[in-house]
């Protein structure tokens, strides 16, 4: 897995709340059997009109906004467990998603793909939207070591939570399979004990 230590970049605002995984990657694109190529269809039905034209009102299509940080409305990633949502965001180029709330499964999927979910307070989220819209070239720093997100232009910052184990994984690029494989002996012992019961 790719490491994530510290990221300084501009951000793309997406103020919609309750963005579900069906919006992030619609089900009709889930027929692929590998992980590549989902970026093209990220937010497909918002990026394009029903006639297949680019929807210029959608913020990902707004040339003013660029960057590898997505700042999204409350309750991001609810709905289906499809990890394709995290793959699509990654493949499109995002490295971190900031919101005031993440659905559980999405959060786990993002962490397993080195896409950092940063949960901030509703107030801080509003400051971020204000900042990005006022200055689309304004940068944001996400420091995983310090668990801090900083608005460079205004100096406002906030701490964010992350499971200490997951933090170590992200910082070092380890993943859960490596860890679990190292525990096979105790897993087998557990199985034997269950058989005796």
């Amino acid at each position: 897995m790719e490491k994530f230590i510290k990221l300084t970049d501009t951000a793309i605002p997406l103020e919609t709340e309750n963005i579900d995984t069906d919006q992030i990657i619609p089900a009709r694109f889930l027929k692929a059997t590998d992980k590549a190529g989902f970026g093209e269809n990220l937010f497909r039905d918002w990026r394009y009109t029903n006639e297949g034209k680019l929807n210029t009102e959608f913020s990902l299509n707004n040339p003013l906004f660029t960057g590898t940080i997505l700042v999204a409305g409350d309750n991001f990633g609810c709905g289906s467990s499809r990890e394709h949502a995290a793959w699509a965001l990654k493949a499109y180029g995002f490295k971190a998603v900031v919101s005031s709330y993440f659905a559980d499964i999405f959060k786990g999927n993002a962490l397993n793909n080195s896409l950092l979910p940063v949960q901030v307070s509703p107030e801080f989220l509003q400051s971020l939207f204000k900042y990005i819209k006022a200055d689309p070239l304004g940068q944001i720093t996400i420091d995983l070591e310090k668990q801090q997100i900083l608005i460079l232009g205004t100096g406002e910052s906030e701490k964010f939570e992350i499971d200490p184990y997951k933090k170590t994984c992200m910082l070092n690029g380890y993943d859960d399979i490596d860890f679990l494989l190292s525990r096979l002996d105790s897993i087998k012992k557990y199985e034997e004990k269950q058989l005796e019961l």
Partner: peptide
């Protein structure tokens, strides 16, 4: 409970998952 594809691979590999108790 539902899991993502990385976790599907974890269970394939070890019949276990690394999860925080909800």
């Amino acid at each position: 409970f539902g899991i993502g594809t990385s976790q599907v691979a974890q269970v394939f590999a070890s019949q276990c998952l690394l999860v925080e108790k909800p």
